[in-house]
Amino acid sequence: MSQPMPPAPGWQPQIPMAPPEPQIPPAPPVPQVPIAPPAPQVPMPQQAAPADPAGYVTAPVAAVQPGPEPAVPLLTLDYVSAGYGQFRALFDVSFAVPMGCAVALLGPNGAGKTTVARVCSGLVQPTNGAIYLGHQEITGMPAHELRRLGIAHAPEGRSVFASLTVEENLLLEFRSSLGKTGAPAALERAYSWFPRLRERRNQIAGTLSGGEQRMLSLARVLADLPRLLIVDELSLGLAPIIVDEVFETLDTIRSQGCTLVVIEQHVNKALELADRVVILQKGRVVYDGPTDELGDLVGQLIPGL
């Protein structure tokens, strides 16, 4: 990010109301060195407090209970085991996601990262253990109820309804979370960030290019910012230049109070963004801590880096 960003083909400027504060200093030449701000050990709800001009953050953030102890993490996994049919993919996974943080979930293929994401969003039910959202136990709750509690999950791969139009994709999401009255405004917000989507509002989403589909799935979650956003391989199949912008978008929404769980193959990018890192291997947590304490362990824990 040391050089000025050229206009990206296809990827329109993100959230316009992003505070221009330079959160991330110019990237040092060695990418391994974590450059994220010091890990916030304390949740940072105050960062979320100032409502942005469009006023769209207020609803979800206001829903966060202040809680008696400020240190309660937004999401807690407590000895969670899970699997598919006979297969067990996760073994006693425990970690916590502090409020307002970005947590990178790293590990080799098949380590169970996607399963963790699915467990957090309710797509896969744990066979053992418990999950908490703040103080509330959410173990066993179906995905659609968790979405209403503010956990959004942008799954791996194509995550748009290919047979619906762009606008229908957006409306489906907005109507369920904001009701019929709030949906048009959210639609407008989504279009104002991604004008490309407005151009293609009546196009069938399956005919969009890969980058546009990613745009659409981001627009779906962003126009009504959740408390917790889980993104799984958001940059898969995107050109490097667009990957950068995706990460900037994530950084911006984090600064607006949205807690993030990020699964990424671009480990360096994820480390730049994340405050904390959880590394999985073969279904178990092998590292859980602040990014800047990771040091050169990362090279040992994630082969090939």
């Binding site: 699997g83 598919y84 049919g85 006979q86 297969f87 067990r88 993919a89 996760l90 073994f91 080799p108 293929n109 098949g110 380590a111 169970g112 990262k113 996607t114 399963t115 791996e156 791969g157 291997q281 073969k282 279904g283 178990r284 092998v286 082969p303």
Partner: peptide, 23 residues
Amino acid sequence: TAGVGPLPDTAGAVAGTAGGGSY
């Protein structure tokens, strides 16, 4: 040999059973 892991669909599905490896 990072793991006789699964297809993308069942991501992580086999990681458990494949867990004869080292933790």
